[in-house]
Amino acid sequence: MGDTKPDETLDCRGLMCPMPVLKTKQAIEKLEPGQVLEVITTDSGSKVDIPAWAKSTGNELLSMKDEEGVHKFYIRKK
């Protein structure tokens, strides 16, 4: 799943809780169902928060990865 090509990218680097989740919600609303959003964060709390948000809203978290303190999430809109 690491090769998923995102339709849109949201850069939340430098933002703290709750901003990454709030911005992810706003960004996913602009997509069509089935499209994939890439979210990039540096807030370590987002590693738990974004999966929790995805679970609660029913959007599918395809994958997540860590690259030297930068977290990337791939979410498919339901």
């Binding site: 809780c17 709750p18 709030l22 919600k25 948000w53």
Partner: peptide
């Protein structure tokens, strides 16, 4: 406010 806005984002 952090909880309220996050909860809203979680529908």
């Amino acid at each position: 406010f952090i909880l309220a806005t996050t909860a809203a984002a979680m529908d």
